[in-house]
Design a protein around this nucleic acid. Structure first.
Lengths: 220, 220
DNA sequence: TAGATTGTTAATCGATTAACAATC
DNA sequence: TAGATTGTTAATCGATTAACAATC
């Protein structure tokens, strides 16, 4: 029996968790190409990590392989999907339908990642009422009543950083317990059981700035 | 003298590098609020990490503080900006002006992060010639001549994953040595001196899926 | 069975934290 | 000077890698 699979006392490290979606992705690609079987060594070569790490990572959740054979590709992908909870379908709302919010609402396959995207909200009359990817953009003023009625689990925040903290507090009151935060602000709420994934695209770009400049300085 | 400041033999770990933009951001906020002086302990409380780590991180690049005093906020921010190379202004192009590309071209302050955004490219007649944030979208067919003329350093890839690998190879031939990659594909090019920052928003969202589901399972 | 490859324990490596002497 | 806080070394912790017995 996989130890800690029930998700109760299990404490799988964040480093491991963050690799799971990548495994899922690679296994999906392999499955699509008709690959049904893979060893940790083969997968490690494709993904640029060690076979040891793959086996360690997977064994945090259970023994999905078979000695002498390797791993069944579609079965393993499916297991990882279940571990991540892609089958449960959390309810999500997105707030802030500017360029980024629109891009995410349009681009991102929420379904495939364990969500039903229920609604989009904005506060600008220019945007409210317009259609974005099957959804009519709602007025932020109905947020309270909407949340009480539909009980979303997760909010995607595509709003300016000034508005982020107050809105997050409001949303927590309304029962939201997960944030995918694109506002240029570190949400780190001191509320028990609230989960935040901060996406800082600016920080990512600045990391690249450093790395490229370092390369350039090397050759001069 | 800061050791390894010349960027030659210095090998500052990626974990440290990735924290630098966040320091830069927090220091900027503090400076904006008129704060001129801060100790590692105060900063650690604001940022949610240890004072030790802050001092260790900064001392990878030099001794920017003063015993008994702490750090000068604007001066330190400035130093970190220089470390990251925000003052050098790399030339960048963006390829793929779909929703995401448009959001990034419009949203992201490239100037503030060490870039001149030179041009946007797309292959769709619907988009070519339209204006996006001061730039006319160019036809991808002129990419070669454009690159030979303007010698961009970095390409922002907002294209479907199918196109990513081939385009990246082409861009390397054209002298690009850094990629900010949003295509749903792990660019890991075996070329010497090519730097890639992969942004996988889907992976980020799936990590949140796991974390929220884990919280939900806890309380049942 | 023999060969292959896992699951798992042990060893190594790196990153974080603690401690404290140096010094402003 | 005394107090505060850095820079830096040492200790701890966690994550990755290596090794190998279990087993398909």
């Amino acid at each position: 029996m996989p130890k800690g699979y029930d998700g109760k006392e299990s404490t799988v490290s964040l480093s491991v968790i963050r690799r799971m979606p990548r495994y899922y992705r690679f296994l999906g690609e392999l499955a699509k190409m008709g690959c049904t079987r893979i060893s940790s060594r083969e997968l490690s070569e494709k993904m640029g990590l060690t076979a040891s790490q793959i086996r360690q990572d997977l064994n945090c959740f259970g023994g999905f392989g078979q000695q002498g054979y390797g791993y069944n590709v579609p079965a393993l992908q499916d297991e990882i999907g279940k571990i991540l909870g892609l089958d449960q379908k959390l309810n999500a709302i997105l707030i802030g339908v500017g360029n980024l919010g629109r891009a995410i609402a349009t681009h991102m396959d929420f379904e495939a990642r364990g969500y039903n995207l229920l609604a989009l909200f904005d506060n600008s009359p220019d945007v409210i009422g317009t259609m974005v990817n099957q959804h009519t953009v709602e007025d932020i003023s109905i947020l309270d009543s909407f949340c009480r009625k539909h009980k979303p689990d997760v909010a995607v925040l595509c709003i300016p950083k000034e508005a982020a903290k107050a809105l997050a507090e409001q949303l927590i009151e309304l029962g939201i317990h997960g944030f995918w935060n694109f506002s240029h602000y570190d949400l780190s709420l001191n509320h028990e059981g609230i989960v935040v994934e901060n996406v800082h695209l600016g920080d990512s770009l600045m990391t690249l700035t450093y790395m490229v400049n370092k390369e350039l300085n090397k050759n001069k």
